[in-house]
Design a protein around this nucleic acid. Sequence first.
DNA 1: CCGTCATGCGTACGATCGTACACTCCAAGG
DNA 2: CCTTGGAGTGTACGATCGTACGCATGACGG
Lengths: 185, 185
Amino acid sequence: MATGQNDPERRERIITAALDLIAEEGVAGTSHRKVAARAGVPLGSMTYHFGSMDELLREAFTRFSSSIVAVFEERLGAATTPDEAREAIADLVHHLSSGNQRELVLTHELYTLAARKPAYRELTREWMSRSRRALRWHFDPATARQLDALIEGLSIHRALETEPHERALTLEAITRITQGGGAAA
Amino acid sequence: MATGQNDPERRERIITAALDLIAEEGVAGTSHRKVAARAGVPLGSMTYHFGSMDELLREAFTRFSSSIVAVFEERLGAATTPDEAREAIADLVHHLSSGNQRELVLTHELYTLAARKPAYRELTREWMSRSRRALRWHFDPATARQLDALIEGLSIHRALETEPHERALTLEAITRITQGGGAAA
DNA sequence: CCGTCATGCGTACGATCGTACACTCCAAGG
DNA sequence: CCTTGGAGTGTACGATCGTACGCATGACGG
């Protein structure tokens, strides 16, 4: 018994399709049927691979937040001085808030879920925790925490503005927040 | 003709009920029927007073953002020095991110809509614009802009954390951001 | 007093939803 | 070869949705 012929590939495709769909139509407009159609799997497959919609959403957003934080860590890991770190952060803020509606939308969808359900708050907590850890490679803990919040606000506001602020402003804000605290502990 | 016996009261109740419902179950879980039931109005009333769900949502969130920004303006208006303004901001951040799931949830729901649909982005744009105007009563424009983003990030992160940061950290961040730029232009 | 008409409501329709469940199918054990 | 059982699927059910639309109602102009 236990054949499991093409299980992993299926699950993968479903999660990817779910994220794409959420990005396009929101969690509200996401249904088993739509995800199944987009992933090219039968409807019955959905409840087979995922016990419920919630389970699928949780896996999807876990994947998403991991991918975002991975980029964050990679960029910050490449920086060798506080100044390079500041530049990297400015890049990240502007990358996140430019063009790419996808990541912006998915982030907000996740935050909305997190605001209401503790299970998703666990995800965002983990996300923040890893972000701060990366920031602590270059700055002291208190600064890392403030900086993390600043990055969040800058990204959101930049994305929502009709005339997004210039990179210089981003860098200025980052500099101000980081100038009080020194290098990493 | 044109009797309009109890129009305004009805509309009011519907909008209030809609906001309550969105706070509890999210935009996703909000339907004409549920709002009608909560507001104590017949289902048919919904489509009569509001052409579509979208129209209702837009009115509801307009009301919501106005009320939030009104508190913001009031508190900042009461401050007479930059230091008092900083204290007021810290209070606002901590008020927004404490206890009150309602405002947090509604804010995220709005941002999620704004991230996808330009019509709602207009709302958030207006919101940001008014916030910044209030901040400019005490700080120069560039600082106001950075500060606005910082407030956003601090509020969100504080609300999502398991161990929300202390007021001292909030004040420290505000001070760092505002120390570069001087008083209002 | 009556006709008229805007205001507001009840209901019904077609679409879509999540999910339960009976089914097929194929690899492995004998 | 046949049996068996789990992996994966198709379908059907009951609930819920947004909205269109016909009808009640009560205030005014005459």
